[in-house]
């Protein structure tokens, strides 16, 4: 592979379905060996973009390259060198672990000897050794996703596309899944992953935010925070966060509090505004007026979730 070339290149990709524009001029690059996070609400165009880059969907306009090869012309050369985990569970539920791995191995043209070797490694990697003959549907969600990832990398792809691989998976299993991703990236595999989980986004080297078909931000997590969130966030720890949130929203409606994004964050409240520190006093006043204890207030660094929610407004 040409070292100067990005592993994935999207250039002004556009996809229209009738009157609806699902993807509207999306461009980005992913360098070899990077873990690239693709973030956005449901229906923002993440899956459509991935499908275009994989050559499963013909773009209305724009072009994509994978490993320096144009997708429109060279899909057949690209396919054996990339792996894909589609959004929905991508394995066959009625087949066993071994049958699934065998099928995908053969689909990618592995010889029987290669297949035996890779299968052993895949089972070790997914922690499924000894469970080869279990039907896939009898595995729990986390195990299934690890198996799906093992199947997707059986043929040693250079680029891996993962569409919401951890949706609906418990935190421990998500952790295990990401450990697998790190070791793949360490081996030089380029990973493009979409996710809803902001803690996962923090683990990516680069991120892109997509909203209504357009990229709203692209860069490292720090760059994104800086570009989308001009200041720190005010964090409140009131005794009763729910009641406090209601009191503050009422105060906003009554015009006693300047506009700001206030979100519940566990038992705390995050207030996002251009100059959040100036809101300390009005907030304390509004809460006291409602008979509530404001509790401690701190200015903190915004999390990606703050950025994400703020950028969606």
């Amino acid at each position: 592979m040409d070292a100067q070339r990005p592993a994935i290149l999207a250039q002004d990709l556009v996809k229209r379905f009738g009157d609806f524009t699902a993807v509207n001029g999306v461009s980005f690059e992913v360098q070899p060996g990077q873990i690239f996070g693709f973030l956005g609400p449901n229906g923002a165009g993440k899956t459509t973009t991935i499908r275009m880059i994989l050559g499963l969907l013909k773009p209305t306009a724009g072009r994509a390259e994978v490993l320096g090869l144009p997708v429109a012309q060279a899909a057949a050369q690209i396919r054996p060198r990339v792996g894909y985990m589609s959004q929905r569970f991508s394995l066959y539920n009625d087949l066993t672990v071994r049958q699934n791995l065998t099928f995908f191995g053969r689909a990618y043209g592995l010889s029987d000897a290669e297949l035996a070797e890779r299968m052993r490694q895949a089972l070790d990697m997914a922690g499924l050794a000894g469970r080869e003959h279990v039907r896939t549907k009898d595995l729990s969600g986390g195990w299934r996703q690890r198996l799906a990832l093992s199947a997707a990398v059986l043929h040693r792809p250079q680029v891996l596309f993962l569409d919401e691989p951890t949706a609906g998976v418990d935190p421990v299993s998500r952790r295990a899944f990401w450990d697998m991703l790190y070791s793949l990236a360490a081996e030089g595999v380029t990973v493009l992953v979409t996710t809803h989980y902001m803690d996962e986004a923090e683990h990516c080297q680069r991120l892109a935010f997509i909203q209504r078909g357009r990229l709203t931000a692209c860069g490292s997590p720090e760059e994104i925070k800086r570009s989308l969130m001009p200041g720190p966030v005010l964090e409140l720890a009131p005794a009763d966060a729910g009641a406090a949130l209601q009191a503050l929203r009422r105060a906003q409606q009554a015009g006693r509090l300047p506009p700001a994004e206030i979100e519940l964050y566990g038992s705390r409240l995050h207030v996002v505004a251009p100059e959040a520190h100036r809101l300390r006093r009005p907030i304390a006043r509004a809460l006291k007026a409602a008979g509530l204890d404001p509790g401690p207030m701190d200015l903190i660094e915004p999390s990606l979730e703050d950025v994400f929610i703020a950028s969606m407004r």
Partner: peptide, 11 residues
């Protein structure tokens, strides 16, 4: 079941 999309991404 969405497996078709997976199949079409293989060679």
């Amino acid at each position: 079941h969405g497996t078709l999309e997976q199949l079409l991404a293989t060679p």
